[in-house]
Design a protein around this nucleic acid. Structure first.
Lengths: 336, 336
DNA sequence: CTGAAAGCGCTAACAG
DNA sequence: CTGTTAGCGCTTTCAG
């Protein structure tokens, strides 16, 4: 491996100068800098991040802690974070819980705290008091994205309002018999989002004087397949059916749509379906939904962290990210 | 930050002993080790990865280079890699091209080569000669997953055979008028996979003496929406329709299914549809497909890398990963 | 504007 | 089984 010393010798300057020149610091004559740059390139010199990390205390890497990588929502957010880090020259280190929770302690201590990262983005999870304290001791700036935590910087949509907008869209269309396909926490959402959406649904219904019927509330686990099964059971059994279904996520709404199609129930004629997310498939499947943009949320969180690392506080942008109702073909007025 | 020295002093031993004890090396008395462990825990000591990386030459991190994070196939593979690394105590560093190719050189030199990782997993991409040479100079073991490259270790399914199995399933059902929904390289597949699937489709058809009709071959870009649009156009226009559609990916098959549904074409009666992948949604959507398991492929690639890093060569397991026809409701004999 | 020298926090021989 | 001694490759004062 060619090191900084090689470059220094070949250029005829000291390693200190090479270091300064390569990092674009001031106090290097243009001529020297040019020469250093040329030689470094010729020699194929690339600085060792361990060495510079050790010497400078900055690793130029950011960590992301998330429940699992594969779910659409998480990977989209990760893409947004990555995009932002890439332009800033930071590397992305992914700490996934892998859908379980058992190894969490190990992940945290064995990996995150190893001074491998300059800051941490926590995705859709609550940290324990201990975990926060550890991070603070390490003084790694931390932000939460995709949910909110008291006393910790965070960026997320207003989940309550998003649900309200969805349900009120159904109500505005004339629906009164509205069911709910609920999400849950099985894939590592150590968070309140499912609960917030449940509460918001009930509150919105009640605010409009509409009944919340237990038999129309089913559990879809934030998944297509589970939702399809649950909705199929509900629609097949019900003496009386709801005319609309609010689904706590688009993937579950796809399940509802598929269930309806297989049962020969027309959408939106006999059943309106609305989701939350604006998943990539929502458009081609004609699903009305409340759009949130996990990519943008992730990118914004990363931007905030980068700003904090640069010392320049971002001028207090909005931590609450926008959501928007997207009307498509899956909702309409009830027939009867 | 409490360092190894603090632990050494508090325990009354040397830093060398602390290091040995903490890493589980032999040659430390049980009593000493126990004491060190206790003290380290009490002090909340966590070794610095920069320091140990510098000193030992091993970073305990593995890099993954991929075209983009969000696509199902990539993120599933990443999840598999992560799972494997986690159990081995390795960190995962993600180098994403972000769907473009422009910053590739920067990603490569600025990040990958910085001695931040012990090995590299390249996902669904070809590296240039220069890139390989750089890696070799750095002696970072490298493996390619999700495609094959001459002269470089790789793990992937037999794409040709997978396509053949899919198409022959249609043929076995009695189909002779078979169309093709093709994928492409727009989201960073710097690879042959799309081409291999095209070729394999044609070869299989020809091998069975069946015609490949241009008007039944459409481009779906490996995406739901694009495929839906393309298939809709084809089915609407065609004087004569195919009785079956082979789709180079499940997401495109979903598009075909949706297009058929909207056109009122019954599946599989009037049109059989088959994909490749066994995407999470394939089951609830009733899609017949050829299953491949990106998670397992990723995990296996990671396992190979880890083995190589440990010096123990894995006993030459199969680099070609299995695929399997999964019959569901979207294929059946042609009606005509 | 540039160089010399002192570490950053750990690991790795080498002795004992 | 344990301690001593050098570094790993860079950054960073502090002088010049």
């Amino acid at each position: 491996m060619t090191g900084i010393e090689d470059v220094a010798v070949a250029t005829g300057v000291s390693t200190a100068t090479v270091s300064r020149a390569l990092r674009g610091l001031t106090g290097v004559s243009p001529a020297t800098r040019a020469k250093v740059l040329t030689v470094a390139r010729e020699l194929g010199y690339v600085p060792s991040s361990s060495a510079s990390g050790l010497a400078s205390g900055r690793t130029m890497a950011m960590g992301v802690l998330l429940p699992s990588i594969e779910r659409w929502y998480f990977s989209a957010m990760l893409d947004g974070i990555d995009r932002q880090l890439r332009t800033a020259g930071y590397d992305l280190i992914v700490f996934s819980l892998g859908g379980f929770g058992g190894n969490r302690e190990r992940v945290f201590h064995r990996s995150i705290l190893r001074k491998r990262i300059d800051a941490l983005i926590v995705m859709c999870m609550e940290l324990t008091e201990d975990e926060y304290r550890s991070l603070r001791d390490l003084d790694s700036p931390t932000i939460v994205v995709g949910g909110s935590v008291r006393g910790v910087p965070h960026v997320s949509i207003d989940d309550h309002a998003a649900v309200r907008d969805a349900v009120e869209h159904l109500i505005a269309l004339g629906h009164t018999r509205i069911g709910h396909v609920r999400g849950g926490g099985s894939f590592g959402m150590h968070f309140d989002v499912p609960r917030i959406r449940n509460d918001a649904f009930k509150e919105t219904m009640e605010a409009h004087g509409l009944p919340v019927r237990e038999e129309w509330s089913v559990f879809g686990d934030f998944r297509f397949k589970e939702a399809k099964i649950a909705v199929t059971a509900m629609l097949a059994d019900a003496a009386e059916r709801p005319t609309a279904l609010f689904c706590s996520s688009d993937e579950m709404a796809f399940g509802a749509l598929t269930a309806a199609a297989e049962l020969g129930i027309s959408v939106p004629g006999e059943l309106s379906v609305i989701g939350i997310d604006d998943h990539e498939f929502a458009d081609p499947m004609g699903l009305t939904t409340v759009r949130q943009m996990p990519e943008e949320q992730g990118a914004y969180a990363a931007e905030l962290m980068l700003a904090e690392l640069e010392g320049k506080k971002l001028e207090g942008g909005p931590v609450t990210q926008p959501h928007e109702l997207i009307e498509r073909a899956s909702t309409g007025p009830p027939l009867h």
